[in-house]
Nucleic acid binder design. Sequence first.
DNA 1: TGATGTATTCCTGTATACAAGAATACACAA
DNA 2: TTGTGTATTCTTGTATACAGGAATACATCA
Lengths: 238, 238
Amino acid sequence: MTAGLSGDRVKTPQTIAEQVYELLRKRIIEQQIKPGERLLEVAVCESLNVSRTPVREAFRLLQQDGLVERIPQGGIRVTGLSLEELKEITTLRTVLEVHAAEMACDLIEEHEIETLEQIVEQAAALVAAANEGKDIDLDELSRLNTVFHDTICAAARSSYLAKILDIVRMPILRFRPFSLVDREHRLRGVEEHRRMVGMLRRRDKEGLKHLTAKHVGDVSTAVARILSSTQANRGAAV
Amino acid sequence: MTAGLSGDRVKTPQTIAEQVYELLRKRIIEQQIKPGERLLEVAVCESLNVSRTPVREAFRLLQQDGLVERIPQGGIRVTGLSLEELKEITTLRTVLEVHAAEMACDLIEEHEIETLEQIVEQAAALVAAANEGKDIDLDELSRLNTVFHDTICAAARSSYLAKILDIVRMPILRFRPFSLVDREHRLRGVEEHRRMVGMLRRRDKEGLKHLTAKHVGDVSTAVARILSSTQANRGAAV
DNA sequence: TGATGTATTCCTGTATACAAGAATACACAA
DNA sequence: TTGTGTATTCTTGTATACAGGAATACATCA
């Protein structure tokens, strides 16, 4: 047996289909393409100078994420989010996040807790800097949030749970950058994350479950406020 | 406004891609194509006399179901199910099915309970007939099982929960016809369903939650037995 | 014999042409 | 004006050709 390197894989070059998918996904999440808007294969082809085959593939991936839906007249339409749907998802997400927290509380290891602490402090630094009047990088804060929750989810040691949570989070994830605009919400979010890490360290399972449920509820409330204020969901709510 | 008909939709003709998907899906579930087996686009094209485009689409749909996975050397491979994965899924499924039961218990309506009763009696009749030595239609029994759980899930009034449960059930669904071969397991299954309907009628939420968890566990145990006895999962467990 | 460089084969990703079905616009008749 | 039949346009589904990258087989050299 030869030496061999550590476990990371070579990265296969991105296909055009993947590039188209990620581009459209980004634009939808950033609301450059708005809920209700219709997307046609040919239109996308021409604007990106690619053929229909990879665009078709990208459409299917977006559909899988629930970001778009096929419409009978042809093409796809960017999905919206009604308050009823948000409520449905929140209920479900609470169940799953609490379950993940419970499992993570049993299984998480020291180095993972340290990682979480680092993430929280980075986020805290970002938020604190914003309080001193500087511009805040909402994308970076959003990313840290994602990494935080992913790390906990990974500690639950269930790839299926991770997969399902990805699906359930997606519709809400779209609105997170907007919810993070609110200063109070940002502060509370970071503070709650800090407390969650403390609970994981103390293996305070009941406290963690309770706080997780509250945390999910808070995010939902913030998103609901966005949905109500913008008319981004007019007519688009299926 | 004109008269208008009742709410059912016209069925759009099946595309070739859908036909290929359903055919392959059926063969995988029926183990005609076994876990670990490799499938190539061209090979499927030639055997079915269709072009590569619909086959590609079908492959993607199968991948979405988790029935196959892409392999680096090209093509797809039918996925297996390791005991560890079964355990993971069972834990997750229990959480979700219990949640669905809890919601259904609050929201289910009389006519839905009556539907459930009919389904249970049809299943009971099938099982009873088998006890008299007749051949049993396992596919029909399996279908009734699916309808039973779908009806409860529908009563939970959450399309997202339904979607997620579909995903979580899929890997196990593949082995249900095998688990139903066992006579004792069939009898117990029908009896439990009957008790579940009774609990829904009495709105006995705690009892229902408890029984649901047990029911999921029983199915898992049965599938585990199948996995252990056949070597169908040799090497295929990722 | 074993390692290395080269040719070949395999398989997918992509572009593109064609066909068919649905939706729309429009003309014509009552 | 209103309803109906027809033509046109849109849009997708499908087949197919081509290109490129990876894996394999093979030949050559130490």
